[in-house]
Design a protein around this nucleic acid. Structure first.
Lengths: 156, 156
DNA sequence: CGTTATTGGTTTCAGTCGTAACCATCGTTT
DNA sequence: AAACGATGGTTACGACTGAAACCAATAACG
């Protein structure tokens, strides 16, 4: 892996923000994933779906999508999986029979609350490892990126 | 999507750092991907591989892996794709015939330099959209996360 | 009304991915 | 030098993914 001799235009991949951002995000997600995989063998879409339903009393698949930015096929599959675990129940809307309202069962609520604790613990631990200053910067940076995303400024 | 009545333990997904981080990273990557997909129909592993080879004069697949944090099967496939485009050439090492040295062809170098410009432009544009303050915070946050990753501190 | 467009949700299909098995070669041990 | 494990790289295979087609139901429009 010798260095390039001429000094024409190169890019330091390890300093390129999109690369750094994705790499950091995947590593953090991977670490967190270990917890819920170990605990219940859940996949990420299932975890996100559970987390979203748990946040509300009842919700529809469509709403899960916009709240957790997941593709609707992922949600459809995750909902089925959670239903088979008997962690959620569906009920068709009375006035619009296309819509299904989802809500957690007793067991689902228990699993959710357990996972909430795990998530909180993970975040605390993350702050500890990253350092509160770095973590604060990260949050401010994410605020800015999210502002851009929601900004209506069309992506290029 | 009514709010939950009782106030037992819940988690705000949209404030949970692993979620925010992955979401931001995927969105940024998605936007950047449009450029190289539009330009040459490249995939992300191909782009990363090209970017890594371009950074050095010659390199092996193994080294690409550790430098760009990609799985070796991705690299194997990406290298083959770039080879078929005639953007890189392999040459077996004289002393160890398992090793293949990779280097860009003239055309590969041209494509690389073009993509470097695109990447630089993208990053400039990103700074503009996110704002230099937010961007600075983001970078400091990423520094901290990377420090944690490389820190040897075993993940939990 | 009847026709057409839209919407919530599911399924199909053609990729992409990573684990694990694999192949060839090298280094080490005996 | 035969046997062993380790290493660089490829391949086979099951799991996962998203685009697009699809289905049922509702809304919009003539």
């Amino acid at each position: 892996m010798q260095d390039r001799p001429e000094s024409s235009a190169i890019l330091q991949l390890e300093a390129f923000t999109p690369y750094r951002l994705l790499r950091a995000a995947e590593e953090v997600s991977r670490r967190f994933a270990r917890h819920y995989k170990d605990r219940h063998g859940m996949t990420r879409p299932e975890w996100r779906t559970l987390a979203t339903i748990g946040q509300f009393d009842t919700i529809t698949a469509k709403q899960i999508g916009s709240h957790s930015s997941m593709h609707k096929t992922k949600i459809s599959r995750a909902v089925r999986a959670l239903e088979q675990r008997r962690w959620l129940e569906r009920s068709t809307d009375e006035h619009d029979r296309r819509i299904e309202h989802l809500r957690l069962t007793r067991a689902g609520r228990r699993a959710y609350e357990e996972l909430v604790e795990i998530a909180r613990g993970f975040e605390r631990d993350l702050v500890g490892r990253v350092g509160s200053e770095g973590f604060g910067n990260l949050r401010l940076g994410l605020d800015a990126v999210e502002a851009m995303i929601h900004d209506g400024s069309r992506p290029r």
